[in-house]
Design a protein around this nucleic acid. Structure first.
Lengths: 342, 342
DNA sequence: CTGAAAGCGCTTACAG
DNA sequence: CTGAAAGCGCTTACAG
């Protein structure tokens, strides 16, 4: 008769590997191998273990595995927003890239707040992630310090870092801002406004690109910029259109730092009975789903969100495995979508 | 001289509670209590422990804590989509409700797929969540079986379950569908079409509400329904508008099962030079941000997504604590937003 | 290919 | 209030 292990009332009540092993008549070690390195176990024993697993309904305990192996099989992802389709598509790319790799993905929404980011990272660090995917190039100093204390690999998403900096996957936000502005100039617009919200890293880089292009063309003027720190929404786009028209007389085009703002600006311009693009051209950034369908269709920059997530996760995985990736920085580019609104 | 514990090369390299305790000159147990039940430790010892924690940069190991306490402090959340703002707002409510409770939130996107849901739950079960938040009332049989094997509390979100069923937080999708349809009827529309995509539980319940209202008014007709299993998008809304107009002659209003579809239908109707609502009324469901701003503004049903997440998480937490909540089913209602489009 | 022992870093359950 | 011992459920590192 099998003597049951002493249970002082601490057991979780779940089926354990040891129970599976006993049921199969093998050592715990053999049961462990049958599940994680089946090649090292003979066919007959492996079959018996698998049969016991099924019969007992065994579910591995990740906490125990993590503790024993010091591999958490956790990847943490930090995005600044989930309300923005850009980042949910990044997440879809990440999930697809990691599909089947048995990683637990921890999704953290920083809500564009450094404090929130710090809190999330502090919590995530307790799970000792095998790696982390970060949005943006330069975390605030406190976050950098937190991350410096851990040896796990990191990959930055959305923009491109310098060659000697942290691995990154994205595209040049600066170049994209510049490209759109040059396009507007080439179409004959002269009083081109820039409308920016949130004022996160990427928006600021796009604004830099805009300024550079305007200066090159000797069209720059301070009153052409409307920048506010509030979150981007359609409602804000409508409000900022009013402000721009008030502040920048003769404004004939507006480059909005994202499509939400641009959509709101278009709707509001229509309410003011302005013809787009005849009286006012409006363009956005990101190419959200509605932009190709609204009336008029929105001129914008299409960005490779899904691929950024996919490639960033792929790069991170190879870093976790200790491989030396072919490239530590991946430029996925962007595409100008010339449509009706500008 | 302190004899270092034998290290056969298995240590993770991180600072452990034992190291903190030794540094502070107390037992590991005391250091543990100082962090988790500070009231049980005298002020002087507590201070020494906290000082050591800071000096050594100690980060608790969640896996070890979970294993020892058989409390994972994990809550898993399953939503069918992240592309849909409805669910990202639900998530925001959940995060806010659980703020400061030290739960790790696992966000799983099932992509409206039962296979994906099954895979996610199988993985999540390995982390032995303390509780789970599910979208929808009736998981598929295989998922039900998976969940039945675990004693953790569950709460369903979005719709209302029967009194004797699983706890739920949401509103009656059926009543909402019925309310919108009756509204259209009261406005004088007679050939009212229903446009449904995805065909998930909630869409079907809304369609039931529509049918009920149409039958009551003796207006029901098979050709007034356009139902497709594809995911809802603006592009699909545009395509389905064409199909509806072809299939249902004299159609004077369309109730779209969500705002994405409705927005696409509006844009496409405008391209066909149909005046809204004069020649065709269109309404949606959910009240997404763009709906109040587009031209014309969209008549729709506003749904309490954020509060659903918040209340569901609050209910789940009390269930996890073993409390008996005041109500196991919480009806948060919905609001008809009568705007320009219908 | 198989297994007994030890250990991962915490907390439970006692004892004082 | 404080602590020594044992245990959570796995895997590592050996030994055979």
């Amino acid at each position: 008769m099998l003597k049951p292990t002493v249970n002082k009332g601490r057991a979780s009540g779940r089926i354990t590997l040891a129970m599976v092993a006993r049921h199969a008549g093998v050592a715990t070690m053999t049961a462990s191998r049958a599940l994680t390195q089946p090649g090292l176990v003979s066919q007959p024993l492996r079959d018996r273990v698998l049969k016991s697993v099924a019969e007992l309904g065994y579910v591995p305990n990740r906490a125990a595995r993590a503790l024993a192996s010091s591999q958490s099989k956790v990847i943490a992802v930090l995005v600044p927003s989930l309300a923005n389709a850009v980042f949910t598509e990044v997440l879809a790319g990440i999930e697809d890239a990691l599909e089947g790799d048995d990683y637990q993905i921890l999704i953290g929404n920083t809500r564009y707040s450094e404090r929130e980011e710090e809190k999330l990272i502090t919590t995530y660090l307790q799970s000792a992630p095998d790696g982390m995917l970060l949005t943006g190039l330069s975390p605030c100093p406190r976050v950098q310090q937190l991350l410096a204390g851990s040896p796990m690999p990191l990959v930055s998403m959305m923009d491109l870092a310098g060659a000697d900096e942290q691995p990154s996957v994205g595209f040049s936000q600066f170049a994209a801002g510049q490209t759109m502005t040059r396009y507007l100039i080439s179409r004959g617009y002269r009083r081109i406004g820039f409308m920016g919200a949130q004022l996160d890293e990427r928006t600021l880089r796009r604004a830099d690109g805009y300024r550079q292009a305007m200066q090159e063309a000797r069209l720059a003027a301070a009153e052409l910029e409307v920048m506010v720190a509030q979150p981007s929404t359609i409602a804000l786009g409508a409000a900022l259109l009013d402000r721009m028209l008030e502040q920048a007389s003769g404004c004939d085009a507006i480059f909005c730092c994202n499509d939400d703002l641009a959509q709101g600006a278009v709707f509001q311009a229509q309410r003011r009975n302005l013809h787009i693009p005849g009286q006012l051209a409006i363009c956005g950034f990101n190419d959200l789903p509605a932009s190709a369908w609204m009336n008029p269709t929105l001129t914008t920059i299409s960005t490779p969100r899904y691929r950024i997530g996919f490639e960033a996760a792929t790069l991170l995985r190879s870093l976790i495995k200790g491989e030396t990736p072919a490239a530590r920085h991946i430029d996925l580019g962007f595409t100008l979508m010339a449509r009706e609104s500008a």
